[in-house]
């Protein structure tokens, strides 16, 4: 794990850290998990140093059906924060993709906040494996 820029020793974040960050992001709104927010990650990471992660929210991106921010968290990393995307009317669509480091097999979480305060959440497991068994 040291090889991928994240230390072995540090106690990795427990889900509570992640829940606390979601709470802070969501305010008092209960996150909905109805699928309005899509989180796209590979089932098995090809390279723990560079795991693609994409988020998208179905929304008109205007008025109160607009996405303000999407935050991505990696529950199993020493520090669960990954990135927060901020959108505008000119975004046209709330879609973003980047690449992140995962210390180990874990759940990746995305949380979206709409202009009307609604919160949407999605979670996806990503397996980080030793690999090398051909087939």
């Amino acid at each position: 794990v040291a090889a991928i820029g994240l230390p072995v020793g540090l106690a990795n974040a427990t889900p509570e850290d992640t829940m606390a960050k979601i709470k802070e992001f969501a305010g008092d709104k209960e996150p909905q998990t109805g699928g309005k927010l899509t989180l796209n990650t590979p089932e098995i990471a090809e390279n723990g140093n560079s795991v693609p992660v994409g988020v998208s929210v179905e929304s008109a991106m205007e008025g109160d059906d607009m996405v303000e921010e999407i935050m991505i968290l990696a529950e199993g990393n020493p520090n669960p924060d990954v990135v927060t995307f901020k959108f505008s009317e000119l975004s046209g669509e709330a879609i973003a993709e980047t690449r992140m480091r995962l210390a180990k097999t874990q759940d990746v979480v995305a949380v979206a906040r709409m202009t009307n305060g609604d919160i949407h959440m999605a979670k996806a497991p990503v397996k980080v494996t030793i690999g090398g068994c051909g087939g």
Binding site: N40, P42, E43, I44, E46, N47, P52, T129, G131, G132, C133, G134, G135
Partner: peptide, 24 residues
């Protein structure tokens, strides 16, 4: 093609290619 080629076989042989099942 086999979706986990860079995991099951040496990734260093195909550094510029990424695979995956990609159902979408």
């Amino acid at each position: 093609s086999m979706p986990y080629t860079p995991i099951a076989n040496p990734r260093w042989m195909i550094p510029n290619w990424s695979f995956g099942i990609r159902p979408e």
